[in-house]
């Protein structure tokens, strides 16, 4: 399978802390790649570098053969790379529908100062997107009135409305009740597959990783300690000791 995203020799340090220490990673087109690792291992730093929030001090990131490292978040999203956040970044004074419509508008041209945000086409697309995530019933609720699970999904729905080819999700199930987790990931996976979106997600729940990821990358002290199918990687004693063991005590 061809690589959609290629990271080569990424390095980034915050003072003496190496958040990225010579990271090489290929994200394959169409895969669902999980990133696991203890807190402070550099997982979110990788997402931040890929989406333009942080600039790597060395190394390159290319998406569809085009270099994106060093570009602004806006330039990167225009090249088909979107993200969601560990703490959902919703516009809390807007309704859920308006949040997603804003993403649709962002894709089609926010500079429209005349036509309303909830005009026919954009509203329909926003509602259709929410429907795919099972959030249509909450379309007119204010974003700050949602529970954590719905907030996470709405946050990802906004990213999907941008029609990315690659989506990076930072802990899409953190803070979500255990009973909701599997259902949320199933919904996510279904939407991503239907939309033909490649996804990278940071995850702490090994059951989620084992069940849904095509491959898993293990981060440790800014390096990739292991990479491969979940069954193989999660069975590695070193990974179990270094990552899963720590997770259980976190």
């Amino acid at each position: 399978m061809a690589a959609l995203l290629e990271a080569r020799g990424l390095r980034l340090a915050f003072g003496g802390v190496r958040a990225a220490d010579n990271i090489d990673l290929d994200v394959l087109r169409g895969e669902f790649l999980a990133i696991i690792g203890p807190n402070g291992a550099g997982k979110t730093t990788f997402i931040n570098m890929t989406t333009g929030y942080l600039r790597p001090q060395a190394g390159t990131i290319t998406h569809e053969g085009e270099r994106i490292s060093g570009l602004s978040p806006r330039a990167i999203v225009r090249r088909g790379v979107a993200r969601s956040f560990q703490l959902p970044q919703l516009f809390t004074e807007h309704t859920v529908e308006e949040n997603v419509a804003m993403a649709v508008a962002a894709r089609e041209g926010v500079w429209s100062a005349i036509k309303p945000l909830l005009r026919m086409g954009w509203r329909d697309e926003a509602r259709a997107t929410l429907d795919r995530f099972g959030l249509l019933g909450l379309a007119e609720a204010r974003a700050d009135a949602l529970n954590e699970g719905a907030r996470k999904l709405a946050d990802i729905a906004m990213a999907i409305a941008l029609r990315p080819r690659l989506l990076l999700m930072d802990e899409p199930t953190s803070g979500v009740a255990a009973s909701e987790k599997m259902a949320i990931v199933e919904t996510l996976l279904r939407v991503l597959r239907n939309a033909d979106v490649t996804a990278v997600f940071v995850e702490h729940d090994m059951d989620v990783v084992e069940r849904f990821a095509d491959r898993v990358a293990v981060w440790s002290q800014g390096r990739i300690a292991a990479l491969g199918p979940p069954a193989q990687v999660l069975a590695d004693p070193a990974v179990r000791r270094e990552v899963i063991g720590i997770e259980r005590h976190a």
Binding site: S72, V77, A82, T92, E93, V110, A113, L117
Partner: peptide
């Protein structure tokens, strides 16, 4: 309009706008 609505979004989540 989206421009006007984005103004209110600056107040709540300016960074998200950039990532959109």
């Amino acid at each position: 309009s989206p421009m006007g609505q984005a103004l209110a979004a600056i107040k709540t989540r300016e960074q998200r706008l950039e990532f959109m």
